[in-house]
Simulated scan of single mutants.
Amino acid sequence: MTWVHPDATFGATRHAGELLARLPDGTIPTYRVGKLLAERLFVDAWDRDGGWWQGPENGRPDQQPAHLVPSCECGWYGAEIPYDVTGGEIPRPGQEPMRDGASRTAQAAWRDHAAAALTAAVPEPHRQALAQLAATAAELAEERPRAALTLSRQLRDLAALLEPLAVAGALAHHVTWDTIGADLGQSRQAVNGRYVKPSADLSDRVHRLTGQTVEGLLSLARGRGTPPPGAATWAEEIRDLLGSPEEDQKHTEPAAQ
């Protein structure tokens, strides 16, 4: 089964989704196409129990899978979904049951992946929140300029915390370094170099947030079907970043001459 993303923008065709499946022995069935080995796609029937394997008849499994695996042509693999051959939605009165619940769960996971990989636009609720913050910051700059300077520092520090998590998340969805650089308004070489040879400051931030080295975080991000760790200490880091009014005052007092 193949899913096509409705987004007609450049790169959307690179993210066509495919439904794979894993047998009870843990393998994903394959078949040979010339010298290449292709993974068999699986179709989960909506109108009857179970489903069927696509591909050539020769070597086609006679077993139903134990798990479904959402995947994408870009190389992304989602988390495995336990497969119940009778699974699906409870029908409404007078309707037939839909027995492809697991495959629709897989499709939803792929859809989330495709949106993450293709969409750089900030969602409208977040844009509105950012606009409100910008308006508040502008008022603060007029009324309390030193407080606005403190806020500017805090926002800069927040962006520094957010970036490595976003980079790892993008790599987990097979976003290229070229695209990551463009999203950050920088060149591929600048961004890639910053993470291949991380500074002590970047290494410290990543370790505080995730317990990983920068190399370890990026390796986990590229792992098949395994999302990178989130910010386990995010709330703590934000509390430290914001501090208290007394700490802000100490931080901004100039040293005695």
Rank of each mutant, 00 (worst) to 15 (best):
T86G: 14
P97Q: 08
E39C: 06
P24H: 10
H5V: 02
A117C: 01
I180E: 02
E89K: 12
A79M: 15
Y195V: 12
W53L: 01
A21Q: 05
A106L: 06
R92S: 10
Q186F: 09
N192C: 08
G223S: 14
T226Y: 01
S203E: 05
A148L: 04
L184Y: 06
D204H: 13
L241M: 09
L149R: 09
E18L: 14
G88F: 00
G211E: 03
P29M: 15
T86W: 06
R22M: 11
A138G: 04
P229Q: 07
C72E: 03
P164W: 03
L217K: 01
D25C: 09
A66D: 09
R127E: 11
T2I: 14
Y31F: 15
V4E: 11
G185P: 00
R144G: 02
P97N: 07
H67E: 15
Q189T: 13
P6Q: 05
T13D: 14
A148H: 09
E18A: 15
G211V: 06
D157P: 00
A166P: 00
V196R: 11
E142S: 12
L151G: 01
D44Q: 13
A172R: 03
D100A: 12
R60Q: 14
T86Y: 07
R188F: 01
T150W: 08
E246Q: 08
A235F: 04
Q54N: 15
T9H: 13
E89P: 04
Q128K: 12
G78C: 08
E215Y: 03
A109I: 13
V206I: 09
A147T: 05
A200N: 07
D240H: 11
W110K: 03
T233M: 08
